[in-house]
Design a protein around this nucleic acid. Structure first.
Lengths: 131, 131
DNA sequence: CTCCCTCCTGGAGTGCGCTCCAGGTCAAGG
DNA sequence: CCTTGACCTGGAGCGCACTCCAGGAGGGAG
């Protein structure tokens, strides 16, 4: 009888990672993970620490705006094993640049919005002072 | 004979605002603008400075992540005229908070990615030194 | 007059990233 | 033995924000 691997259930994994169970299954189906998550005897997923660490990383990539398509590419590189570190690095660095640009843009737009907030605030203060 | 208003054509407006002509028409159809853009005798849109300024503002809101639904609400307040400045301000401030949270989150995730980049960089340097 | 370009409209289509569902299995608790 | 609950699969559906298209009109250049 094959022994059931220990590890987090999908609900536990979802909880720890801040994702939904549907998203976890979707990521696996879509090939974003490095391997198929091991199963218990009854066919339930049992997430190992290495699985959780990988998903944590791709969650970071995703929440900094990396499209799933690119996560896919990165996963393929890591799956391919040692020897392509330059490529992985290039991908991460390109993403870093993209994120920095985005941050700068959002910050600039936020500045203009803040300015608008200042205008409204002043106007409201003037009204309340004159009342 | 009614005189055609001067102003930017849709192509010029799109160009200045960094949007597509389709997006401009979509925004208008969807009620994101303060008013219907004036038309030339032949029915072509002629964007006035006030129209461009408004679209510039909502573009800033959009590119800081405000959903169209909320831009809609903001437009409704402004269209309603004076007297609801507190509400507008509340909306903008709430958005400001949301954006600040996002920025913090993205920055934090980027830090972790940078760490990863550092690890790869070190590894590659060690390889090239030992070569 | 004809060609061509830009614009018009209503409506359909697209890409992304999930999210939900029906129908089913399995193991534990009462 | 029966119910309950967590999980499984394949596949459909959804919300968002555009984006594209067919078919047509106005106006200037040659």
């Amino acid at each position: 009888m094959p022994s059931t691997p220990t590890g987090a259930t999908i609900a536990e994994a979802a909880d720890r990672l801040g994702l939904s169970v549907d998203t976890l299954r979707y990521y696996e189906r879509d090939g974003l993970l490095l391997r198929a998550v091991p199963r218990s005897n009854s066919g339930h997923r049992r997430y190992q620490p290495q699985d959780l660490r990988w998903i944590e990383l791709i969650t970071r990539l995703r929440s900094t705006g990396m499209p799933i398509r690119d996560v896919h590419r990165y996963a393929a590189l890591v799956r391919a094993g040692d020897g392509n570190e330059e490529e992985r690095l290039a991908l991460l660095r390109a993403h870093r640049e993209t994120v920095l640009h985005q941050l700068a843009e959002v910050t600039a737009h936020l500045g203009a919005i803040d300015h608008k907030i200042g205008i409204y605030t002043d106007r409201l203060e003037r009204i309340s002072h004159s009342a």
